[in-house]
Amino acid sequence: MRQGDDNSLAAEMKREKIAEIEEKVKSEFENKYQVLKRLGCGGMGCVFHVQSTDESGGDYALKVLDKEAYRKNRLLYKQEANVMLNLDHPGIPKMIDVTEDDDYLYMVQEFITGKPLSQIIREKGRLEAGKISDFMKSVASTLSYLHHQGLIHRDIKPDNMILTADGGITIIDFGLARKKEQIDEADKRVYGTLSYTAPERFNRKPGTVQTDIYGYGAAMYQLCTGKKPENMKTEPWHSYQVMSEHLSETMPSVAGEIIKKALAVNPRHRYLSFDAILWDLSHENKMRTIKDEELIRQAIEVFLIFSTLLFIGLISL
């Protein structure tokens, strides 16, 4: 079989699978929801925009996971539902219901109206500096809540951040989220999008609070610069230097310094928590004063050294 025929067959199989899932959704939920639109499909299933058929007429996202697609990782397919069922935060979609049959797992979630930050970056290039701090605080606050619940997200990127009509940011896609202390199959490989993957993950180090902080830094870097984060797989120190220079050019502020620290190659040099990030963001004026004082101190030291050398030179004449 030629490559083109092989690709066509794979595409046809995918169409058949999607059609099967759509029919399954309609038959399983015809008395509860009307399917308005298919939002997307991937290797693990599909997501639909549905509307309740009762008087409320509420909008929801119905996520369908194909159990067969998880045959090598059977323990993972319920992970997202288990993580989200007990979460209650305005920056996280509320899980409404979870059901399953022999073939599929169905998750009904709050439907979030808005645009992914990745789309906004594509449209605008980069965001205005005045909005960056607010966005950084919004995302950091949500991730702080998640970490305090004993969970990590493991897939932080602009695609998974939705800017809503009220100006807030909602974090979506908890398919890779897990408990902090739990090591799973996903930790044995490099998961997620490479540009937002912390350098230690390329050495198969398990996901941690610090890997979420790196993903946060990489996402905020892209908001500030309009540039895709550097891949940290081969030359992480060089990649960090490139990103640091871009930040200095486009975001020469406390927010830029916070992002640099979140992007540190060594996880021990990053922030310990999102609470620490929030503290720095809420004390920008104080941080700016400290930075200015440090620059003044360094300038004085350089001046004194130069003056001393000049004085010694004059004496020796």
Rank of each mutant, 00 (worst) to 15 (best):
V108L: 14
N86V: 05
M107D: 06
Y145T: 13
Q119R: 02
I112E: 03
R126G: 05
V83H: 04
N82I: 05
D88W: 11
M136T: 10
V108Q: 07
G114R: 00
F111Q: 05
V83C: 06
M84F: 06
N86C: 05
D102M: 10
G130S: 15
M95P: 05
H89P: 09
H147A: 03
A81P: 02
G91Q: 08
G130F: 12
I96E: 12
E123D: 15
I92C: 02
E80P: 05
S141W: 12
V83Y: 09
Y104L: 04
Q109N: 09
V83G: 04
E128S: 14
D97E: 15
L143F: 15
M95C: 12
I121K: 01
V139E: 03
R126K: 15
D102L: 11
V139I: 15
D134M: 11
V83L: 10
I120C: 01
S144A: 12
D102E: 14
K94R: 14
S138N: 14
Y104M: 07
S118C: 00
V83F: 06
S144E: 15
V139C: 08
G125T: 01
L143C: 07
K115N: 06
L105A: 08
S138Q: 13
S141D: 15
E128Q: 14
Y145I: 11
L143I: 12
M95A: 14
Q119P: 00
H89R: 10
S118G: 01
G125E: 06
I121A: 00
Q79Y: 03
S141I: 02
A129D: 11
Y106K: 09
L85R: 14
V83A: 07
L146W: 07
L105W: 08
Y104G: 06
T113D: 11
Y106N: 11
E100P: 04
G130C: 11
T99D: 10
D102G: 09
S144G: 04
H147D: 08
A140C: 09
G130I: 12
R122F: 01
D134W: 10
Q79C: 06
K124N: 06
Q79H: 05
A81V: 07
G130E: 15
